[in-house]
Amino acid sequence: MLDDFLVRAMLASVGVALAAAPLGCFVIWRRMAYFGDATAHAAVLGVALSLAFSLPIFVGVLAMCLIMAITVSSLSGRGFAMDTLLGVMAHSSLAIGLVAVSFLSGVRIDLMSYLFGDILAVGKSDLLLIWGGAATVLFLIIWRWSGLLLSTLNADLALASGFKPKQEQMILTIALAIVVAVAIKVVGVLLIAAMLIVPAATARAFSQTPETMAIVAAGIGAFCGLAGLQSSYYFDTPTGPTIVCVCALLFVITTIVARAYRVLTTGEKV
């Protein structure tokens, strides 16, 4: 069964979606969207470093994403606004990464496949990596759920209840780096942020509690992964971008429907 490239692609997209969507809920709640983007951009530099030092791509990307995330966390609140800092770091690391790749003579790499993913080329070892990473992220989130949630709600409430918000923040940072590192093959560096944010944003309209939002987001993400894969097969379009297009379409439709429902039931103005 795993010999079929389409089956492997399906499993890969579902694996990434299951980890990315619940994590994406925290990214939204904590207003870290740009933070996720910056971490993903740093991944290009990670790819360049892995190729230069003949390391597995996963290792280089994970290391670079962690360095990026920890640098941003520790620099913030020292005289720079967070968005300025992220803007500088994200685009500099993307540019440095692209320049560094061009220095690597003798190595032929398909840059497009790192920027936009190459899900149809996912091998069995990639699949193992993706599901291993996804399981780790889900484990971290479920294990620390109460602490993460309370720290997200209010750092002082968390402290008073005996949690350490800084430690919880670090766990999210690590989880984010893992998701970026495993998702690079599926949707690529530039579209990872979409897999984090769009399913979670879509799930918001249907959710009364944080738990339902995380579960619904995972479901929506997995559905979009499969539907996107089918569509790209049918329309012969690039797969990673097609998955994100399906996510976006679903977001627009549900937003309009939810809005219309509210207008009809409560008489709220459009």
Partner: peptide, 18 residues
């Protein structure tokens, strides 16, 4: 306490936290 409107949270859920 500012609660971000993107975070769905019922009173009951909040009472059961942590």
């Amino acid at each position: 306490l500012h609660i971000d409107e993107t975070l769905p949270m019922t009173v009951r859920r909040f009472m059961n936290l942590p």
